[in-house]
């Protein structure tokens, strides 16, 4: 059913800390590895080692630069489905294949009923859905619905593959509908924010901003490089070479 549930029991989602993400792509790779064999299987690639590779991935890691000179800042920026509370990607679907679960708020595509019309991807402002040309259906982040409730996995593995893989701990998973959960606490403590809040889809996933740099860099105080000096013959020789090369 592509009408949205008025409320969901939980709001499962991710919190991504942009302060410590290093843009290593481990989460994207791990996501691809799990999901090409899991709920969304396959995640097809075309010409993967050729001149024009393309393929369905559910998590994309951008890097952006802000500011100029000494104040410049690099921010690595993972982007995947935000499991919005009021997204049109669900309501535009003609078949009911795109839906939001009442029990945990996860937005899913049913691969058995999707007709591959692509309309849901047009309705997503975050570019979070990718069409699989081989499979003929729409693919998107499932929040690893086939891991988080999977009792055949060890307890510590029952989290999304991206969270499990992140080497820096930049990704956290939990119930953002519960104000006492760890993820909700970190959002409150760090001024977590929504992407494109103005659009009004009310994303569940939150981002934590980069911390303010505590010591401002002042490039003018950088000392000049050392020059070679000395009294012995060999030191004088090096000093002469240094002067000659520097001039």
């Amino acid at each position: 059913m592509t009408t949205l549930p008025p409320a969901t029991d939980k709001k499962l989602g991710l919190v991504i800390d942009l302060d410590i993400c290093v843009g290593c792509q481990a989460c994207a790779t791990s996501c691809k590895e799990w999901n090409t064999g899991g709920y969304s299987a396959p995640l097809s690639d075309h010409d993967p080692y050729g001149a024009d590779p393309s393929g369905a991935w559910l998590n994309r890691i951008h890097s952006y630069e802000f500011g100029e000179g000494a104040a410049a800042k690099t921010v690595h920026f993972p982007r995947s489905c935000l499991h919005c509370e009021t997204p049109d990607c669900v309501t535009v679907c003609p078949t009911g294949a795109s839906y939001k679960r009442v029990e945990d708020g996860i937005v899913l595509v049913n691969p058995d009923t999707c007709i591959g019309c692509k309309l849901c991807s047009w309705a997503c402002p975050y570019g979070a859905r990718e069409y699989d040309h081989d499979d003929g259906v729409m693919k998107k982040c499932t929040l690893c619905v086939d891991r988080i409730y999977n009792e055949t996995l060890a307890e510590e593995d029952r989290i999304p593959a991206c969270v499990r893989a992140c080497p820096t701990g930049a990704r956290a998973f939990g119930d953002l509908g519960d104000p006492d959960s760890d993820v909700s606490r970190s959002v409150a403590a760090r001024d977590g924010f929504n992407l494109l809040d103005e659009f009004g889809y009310r994303p569940v996933n939150k981002y934590l901003p980069p911390r303010k740099t505590s010591v401002p860099l002042d490039l003018s105080e950088t000392p000049p490089p050392e020059t070679a000096t000395g009294t012995t013959a060999i030191e004088k020789l090096f000093a002469w070479v240094d002067r000659t090369l520097s001039s």
């Binding site: 059913m1 592509t2 009408t3 669900v90 309501t91 535009v92 679907c93 003609p94 078949t95 009911g96 294949a97 009923t113 007709i115 019309c117 309309l119």
Partner: peptide, 9 residues
């Protein structure tokens, strides 16, 4: 299947 979701789509 596309005939089913006329309530929203």
């Amino acid at each position: 299947g596309a005939f089913s979701q006329w309530r929203s789509s």
